[in-house]
Design a binder for these strands. Sequence first.
DNA 1: GAGCTTCTTGTACAGTCGTACAAGACTAAA
DNA 2: TTTAGTCTTGTACGACTGTACAAGAAGCTC
Lengths: 220, 220
Amino acid sequence: MSTAKASVSSVHVSQDRILRAAARLFRERGFGGTSIRAVAQAAGILPGSLTYRFRTKEDLIVAIAEQAVEHALAEVQSAIAESRDPLERIRLGMRAHLRALLSEEDAVPVLVFDLHRLPEHTRARLIEARRPYDAIWEGLSYAAIGAGQLAAGLDVSLVKRFWFGATNSVALWYRPDGPLTPEQIADAFSTLIALGTLSPSARPDSLEEAFKAIATTGRP
Amino acid sequence: MSTAKASVSSVHVSQDRILRAAARLFRERGFGGTSIRAVAQAAGILPGSLTYRFRTKEDLIVAIAEQAVEHALAEVQSAIAESRDPLERIRLGMRAHLRALLSEEDAVPVLVFDLHRLPEHTRARLIEARRPYDAIWEGLSYAAIGAGQLAAGLDVSLVKRFWFGATNSVALWYRPDGPLTPEQIADAFSTLIALGTLSPSARPDSLEEAFKAIATTGRP
DNA sequence: GAGCTTCTTGTACAGTCGTACAAGACTAAA
DNA sequence: TTTAGTCTTGTACGACTGTACAAGAAGCTC
């Protein structure tokens, strides 16, 4: 990869076309359900050329993952730069995350949904590729906790899984011609996770009590 | 399927073994990544026998989906029978849903995560199979709204997607030997979506205002 | 145990899979 | 224009794919 990067711009474009085509197919049919030949055809090259660029199918999906991280990372970083308020930065970051997830960059959903069914070795490479992205969210979370904006007693890693799970799953039902824009969905989800859904009359007196009651004890 | 059901019990068991083996493989490797032969071997029969029972690969995944719905439906129905309070019934139902998702019945995650990448025709058959399950949740939602337990102004279908998205995604990271039981996770998620995550001091005065502000306008 | 149905077996087919590689076509520097 | 390096092509390999089917085994009813 790095050797190719040192080369001419026309090569780069082509590389990108291959990755886009592959990401789209992986997203639509899954990793196992997509053939090298199908990727090559979608990219407008012959299978042999694809093998030359990516020696194995695994190399291909790892390259896609790296592109996905690069893309999402850039989106999120530029989005959160708009504000200094930790909570607002999370909201803006989630907007960007969802935008990246739903954009034509099919690479992101591939990284989200195909990770768990890849060979162990490949999965490890992809998780490694995703690291910088995980790190940025780690930072955003701690900032909001430090500022006291999130309720005391919350299991932050569980909340993170909750939120990302909900947000990522938008890719499973979102249609570009649907009634809501990605930004609207992201904002709606941000509000839901911030405020909850109970009507005021049905809420308990002490939030702290309620939060401390959940998930504090482990397995029997 | 119905013809086989009229037969002997030993046949039934075998049918179930096939579906379990197939579901596990589909879950692990995806639909496209799993071969008929692999399923047959995992079930302890020869490929020919599998073809006899399920004429095509599509028939196989549809049968798995039907089993998934049957299983999850039974779990949820027996769980919600424990209470008459609409909100509590939703909490109990979600517990059951998550239990079904994480149980050894791999069929449920297959239905959740593989749906969107199947051929259109197959997808339609699976959505049809899932109908009774969707219906029961529809009923649970409306009951809670009718009882005024959910905040006014909420987009209920969006909340449903939010909650199911978060809950279903547990299957992507849950490990049986992890620190939390499915029930604990389900309850934690129920609390989160009920109460939100903001600290009391960071909450706005009027919930209604906040909820009405989200996702009420459509695309530009 | 005869007769009928249900299921399993083993093998076969035509097609596709991931990958390899010699041979040729490009491109850029010398 | 030569040379060296990069990339594409076309073809090939053995393994595997989903499905089909004749032949036989097993089970149930009478």
